[in-house]
């Protein structure tokens, strides 16, 4: 329950329960692999951010592929996915996907049962934090995790506010490697 302040001040936690900070990529990979039905929710910032010229969406797709995680493409992310030859399993927006996730009886994007670990990546942080709040309060049956370089208090598991992009890049690459090993 660290009292770490999120990178964007507007997301500061006013409360007691806060995300567990994880900096070790293998720990993250472990959590993902232990999940029975993970879901990766992708937001449009992934189309704008790049690390050394490689768009974050490509990292996201590698993660999805390495761990065989279904994808929910929010906003207009699907446009880019189509270009890259990937078909998402859902095109719900952020507010819609959490609306469905908080219903324990929802069958999930693959109709195989609701998800137990939801990973958020690339939603603008204020909307992301609010969406996480929905699940924090109303979806005790699942856990949430974030991959952006900001600390998200409302998640269950979050990365720190990476000061340098290199650190974030290293984390993501390590994560992908770990997930591939565990295949």
């Amino acid at each position: 329950m660290s009292a770490l302040i999120p990178f964007h001040r507007v997301n500061v936690l006013t409360g007691i329960k806060s995300a567990r900070l994880i900096e070790d990529a293998s720990e993250y990979a472990d959590l993902i692999q232990k999940a029975k039905r993970p879901l990766l929710v992708l937001g449009p910032r992934l189309l704008e951010w790049a690390l050394d010229g490689k768009l974050l969406i490509e990292y996201a797709l590698e993660i999805a592929k390495a761990a065989n995680i279904p994808i929910c493409a929010t906003a207009h992310v699907k446009g880019k996915l189509t270009e890259l030859g990937v078909k998402p399993d859902s095109v719900y927006d952020a507010v819609e996907i959490v609306n469905a996730l908080k219903d324990p009886d929802w069958k999930g994007v693959k109709r195989a049962g609701n998800h137990d670990l939801v990973i958020f990546f690339g939603i603008r942080s204020d909307l992301g934090e609010q969406s996480l709040s929905v699940l924090k309060h109303f979806a005790p049956h699942l856990k949430t995790m974030t991959l952006c370089k900001f600390y998200y208090p409302h998640a269950n598991y979050s990365l720190p506010n990476f000061r340098k992009d290199e650190q974030w890049k290293a984390f993501l690459e390590n994560l992908i490697d770990n997930l591939k090993k565990g295949e």
């Binding site: 929905v134 309060h137 109303f138």
Partner: peptide, 9 residues
């Protein structure tokens, strides 16, 4: 109604 609490308190 869909609620995203802004504050836990």
């Amino acid at each position: 109604p869909w609620y995203a609490p802004f504050c836990d308190l």
